[in-house]
Design a protein around this nucleic acid. Structure first.
Lengths: 328, 328
DNA sequence: CGTCCGGTTGTAAGCGTTTTCAATTGTGCT
DNA sequence: AGCACAATTGAAAACGCTTACAACCGGACG
């Protein structure tokens, strides 16, 4: 019994002859070990959860896919958990006593969740944003927002709309951090931020459409928009096409992500690499599982502004520049 | 012990008073049941696998997401398994004795896999294509291919390229079925199929780019292309934009899926609803779990041609039409 | 030839539930 | 009050592994 167990799992201290016999027997009997029993006996589940707010986003699909690839290669099962509105309960409930670790994608666990995870001794790593307590693999969202808006400011835009996500909906710090960056870039240029220009696009194509329409209906509409995800930016493009609003002529547009299709539609965007982040997050968790007392590690991934066809010099803003130059 | 177990799981034959006491105790002790032990004892894992060739495709992301939503609501865990190249081993290995059922997305299991699943008594349902043995939730891919090509034929196109996936790569009947439909539509119009016009686009944006470039380099290039997925069609659009090939002026294009962004880029496409299919597949599997001996059920979902801006009457083909009319 | 030791194999005690079945309690009748 | 019977509770046997530990085996060494 014990020898078979050892032989099957490739543990040492089994003679080659015995191992061969065991393998032959397994093949002959078509024996398949019961993973549940193994889990119970070993006290480990061999399963890692990936928790995200949605699986439909381009970003999360990439992350889950890459995580799955890494973990499967390490013989770990991958459980997916989506965090809807009743998030607290579902992260804790989803994880409860059945996984060895969790990768939390772009959602910041609250104190209750943290203490539950600690109590269950389930290590976690955050992918997408920084976490002070646990390991994380992150991008500098503040800097990303700043890059996007600075680009628009440099093109002469002064009234810049922001399409993000309401923080209540997605319990993520990402939207607010990118907004901070946006505000910082504005401040650097001496532009005052107008809260009315910040609208919710729900990180979806449809949300982006609605959001840009709301923005353009304003008395003093923006000449440029920073959408916090390419998917929302695609919505902007679509709505503008339908409403005959020229991009970039009348409205410049910057997205965030560098979605596969950003190139197709010529979208200027802030590029990140979710697959690489996900691989790193998975490896970090695996390391943590092997050495639980290790100090948290934080890996930052770079962002890059990719300028394409949806951004252009703002004529009105440019004339203001000229005016200002002349006044010197 | 037994009473607690019953009370916790909401089974009958527990007095209200006892149940309340149990609940109080659970709360006080912060007790969390060990799912692995429960699984071992009950002989069920409470876990369902979703197996797909890739998680990065728009289509599979939708399916996994919808499946997850349904199954989570039924307190089932969702395990994701991607089927790479060594598919046989991984489907069987992935499923081995740890899940109660599998939803296989757009991959047709081979005889070895079928017999393994049968031997392990793991029921499965196929999402995306029809299966004679097990339950399936499917679309008529032949008809879908026919719809796409018939539309192009009606617009006067005679040389129509097809961008699909090599069947060896994705062990799915989908590409070949859609190709059959294409051939049928061609045959109905009395057009002979040219095998050189059928190329592999790997169901990716990049693959679509390469494929359309190969097509356009031909001595006698097509005037229209049917791409078997919108993602490949997006690649076509991108390559054509880069190469200054006018769509639909010089090349008409039909996709397949009705991706979120198909509307954004004005892509004519064959619409399917993977979320609805996935929900149906999940429910079918749940039913099967409850009543294992039920006869297989097959649910067909409708396809719909959505005409947008990437298809246009072919001037050359149109003139042939006129010529033919005059000759009558 | 006996002893020691590293490597290998076997034994048996869990792991934390579920579930069967027996024991107990409570209820409604006569 | 006594009885039959249903509802509830409790005891204990699985479930199929892992793993600590004991037992064994054979070669190296004194």
């Amino acid at each position: 019994m014990a020898t078979v167990s050892r032989a099957m799992r490739g543990l040492p201290n089994v003679s080659p002859a015995t191992r061969a016999k065991v393998m032959a027997g397994i093949a002959e009997l078509e024996f398949t070990p019961d993973r549940n029993a193994a889990r119970l006996a070993a006290g480990r589940s061999g399963t890692i959860a990936v928790a995200a707010a949605s699986l439909q986003l381009w970003y999360t699909a990439r992350v889950v896919s890459a995580v799955e690839a890494v973990l499967t290669a390490e013989a770990q099962d991958v459980l997916v958990i989506t965090l809807g509105d009743g998030t607290a309960a579902s992260l804790v409930g989803g994880v409860a006593r059945r996984v060895d670790g969790v990768i939390i994608v772009d959602v910041v666990p609250d104190e209750f969740e943290r203490s539950s995870l600690r109590a269950m001794r389930v290590p976690w790593v955050l992918a997408g944003c920084r976490d002070e307590e646990a390991s994380s693999v992150w991008i500098d969202n503040v800097e990303g927002g700043r890059m996007a808006t600075r680009h628009l400011v440099e093109l002469g835009h002064r009234r810049i709309g922001v399409i993000g996500g309401a923080p209540t909906r997605v319990r993520s710090t990402t939207p607010e951090e990118r907004l901070q960056g946006h505000a910082a870039a504005l401040a650097e240029a001496g532009i005052e931020i107008d809260p009315a220009l910040v609208v919710d696009g729900n990180f979806s194509v449809d949300g982006g459409m609605e959001a840009v329409r709301a923005l353009l209906r304003m008395d003093d509409p923006p000449t440029a928009v920073f959408a916090m995800s390419d998917e929302m930016a695609f919505g902007v493009i679509q709505a503008c096409r339908e409403d005959a609003v020229d991009i970039p002529g009348r409205l410049s547009l910057v997205g965030f992500d560098d979605h596969d299709l950003a190139r197709t539609v010529g979208l200027t965007t802030v590029r990140q690499d979710p697959s690489a982040m996900a691989v790193s997050a998975a490896r970090t968790l695996l390391d943590l599982l092997a050495a639980p007392d290790r100090d948290p590690v934080h890996t930052e991934f770079e962002l890059e502004l990719v300028v394409r066809r949806t951004t252009e010099r703002n004529s009105a803003g440019a004339s203001v520049d000229r005016l200002r130059d002349r006044l010197k």
